[in-house]
Computed example of a mutant assay.
Amino acid sequence: MDLKDHIRGVPDFPKPGILFYDISTLLRNADAWQVAMGRLARIVGAYRPDVLAGVESRGFLLAAPLALKLGCGFVMLRKRGKLPGDTVGLNYDLEYGSDRIEIQSDAVTPGQRVVVVDDLLATGGTMAAGIALLKNVKAEVPAAIALIELGFLHGRDRLDVPFEALVRYDQ
């Protein structure tokens, strides 16, 4: 099955000139969703994770069911101020400004194998920050995974761990 057939391109969203890759069309198709999750599970499982870290917010849609399927834990990497309790954060630069990503301070233990999961890799800033944050809390990060990669933005070049995606767009 070609998963691209189940991902809708929405022109000029969220602003003019942007082509948004909408995964809601894939999520609502049970067969395509099953195929995508099966393929992701095979890729992620090869890295033997203890925990999957989903990147806010669409990364949660992939990481949580993958963690359940693989029998491992799930933690959230969220924007500033969204997690209760003690958090550890990392400020990072984006092409249009800066942001902060946080994790609960007790979410992972030193040495745990944590694979970072998101729906889409574009310029790589947020995923690179998530990887760096996990390494700062002493997690081992064997890989990062996304459903979609926008290859023409070269986001994987910003990552210091192996990266894999199910679908790649080169223009």
Results as ranks from 00 to 15, higher is better:
3 L>H: 04
8 R>L: 15
8 R>E: 11
13 F>T: 10
14 P>I: 05
18 I>L: 10
18 I>A: 04
19 L>E: 02
20 F>Q: 07
20 F>C: 05
20 F>S: 04
21 Y>K: 15
22 D>F: 07
23 I>M: 00
27 L>H: 13
32 A>G: 06
33 W>H: 15
35 V>K: 01
35 V>H: 07
36 A>I: 02
37 M>F: 12
41 A>G: 11
42 R>F: 05
43 I>W: 13
47 Y>G: 09
48 R>E: 14
50 D>G: 11
51 V>G: 09
52 L>P: 03
52 L>V: 13
53 A>P: 12
54 G>E: 07
56 E>R: 12
57 S>W: 08
58 R>D: 10
58 R>G: 13
59 G>H: 06
59 G>R: 08
63 A>L: 08
65 P>E: 06
66 L>I: 11
68 L>H: 15
68 L>G: 12
75 V>W: 02
78 R>G: 03
79 K>I: 03
83 L>D: 05
84 P>H: 07
86 D>F: 07
88 V>F: 08
88 V>E: 13
88 V>I: 15
88 V>Q: 13
89 G>H: 11
92 Y>E: 01
93 D>Q: 14
93 D>P: 02
97 G>E: 04
97 G>L: 06
98 S>D: 12
99 D>G: 11
100 R>S: 06
100 R>W: 05
101 I>R: 06
101 I>W: 02
102 E>I: 03
103 I>P: 01
105 S>Y: 11
105 S>C: 14
105 S>E: 15
108 V>G: 08
108 V>L: 12
110 P>V: 03
112 Q>H: 08
116 V>R: 02
117 V>D: 03
118 D>G: 08
120 L>F: 00
121 L>E: 03
123 T>I: 00
125 G>T: 08
125 G>R: 04
125 G>L: 02
126 T>Y: 07
126 T>K: 04
126 T>Q: 10
126 T>C: 07
127 M>S: 08
129 A>F: 02
130 G>H: 02
131 I>W: 02
133 L>I: 11
134 L>F: 06
135 K>N: 07
135 K>R: 15
137 V>M: 11
139 A>Y: 06
141 V>C: 10
142 P>K: 10
143 A>K: 11
151 G>W: 04
151 G>R: 05
152 F>C: 04
152 F>N: 04
154 H>Y: 06
154 H>A: 11
157 D>A: 14
160 D>F: 06
160 D>A: 01
160 D>T: 11
162 P>Y: 13
163 F>W: 09
164 E>A: 14
165 A>W: 00
167 V>Q: 01
169 Y>F: 08
